[in-house]
Amino acid sequence: MGKLVSKYIWESPVRITHWVNFLSILTLSATGIYIGSPKTLALTPSQYIMGWVRFVHFVAAYAFTISVLSRIYWAFAGNEYANWRSLVPYLYKEGRRNMKETFLFYTFFKSKPPHSLGHNAMAGTAYLSVFLLYIVMIFTGFALYSEHAPHSLVRTLFGWQFSLFSNQGMRLTHHCVMWLLLVFAIQHVYSAWLMEVTEKNGVISSIFGGYKSAPTKE
């Protein structure tokens, strides 16, 4: 292996949307768990605890939605590492090879993962599912939100889902997908740590600064 150089991988929209997602998912999960199963915290009816929790939930939901839409835009406008193609490695030959080798690494059949500058092939595949879950959360979330205004634009845009789900089914879906995303977050942090220590390419610091270390010949 030749000399290592610093290479700019994650452009600022990728990093910003990543951290907005991180903060909003944490906020949405914490407030969402309270909304779904509240505890009596108020002493008098003049307090506004549930009111504020719901307000924070809705503001975070808008931040999250804008962030996800921006990232989807950047999947078409950004550099090759941000491109949507890295989320569907199984569509091209090199991606399929990378997927196989990464899978063998995760299952201990190989000691080194294949070198990749952007997402590794398995991660890209996972992120596509995660983005689909994001979309489910945004759609079911706005549909539930629109219940307060049955004649509004939001209701027109998202209310059609009530012909797919019962109201209770929609709330259950919104709830279960939250848990799936939290499970993903645990796995995501672990995988980042694993890559950091095995590949030694600075993957963890790259999501802060954007740079990864890369061999000169590549």
Binding site: I33, Y106, C176, L180, V183, I186, L194
Partner: peptide
């Protein structure tokens, strides 16, 4: 849903620790 979700999170954490 909460019990199942929390169980899944713990199971994932345990599996990843083992890994």
């Amino acid at each position: 849903a909460d019990k199942i979700g929390a169980g899944l999170a713990v199971a994932t954490a345990a599996a990843l620790t083992a890994h």
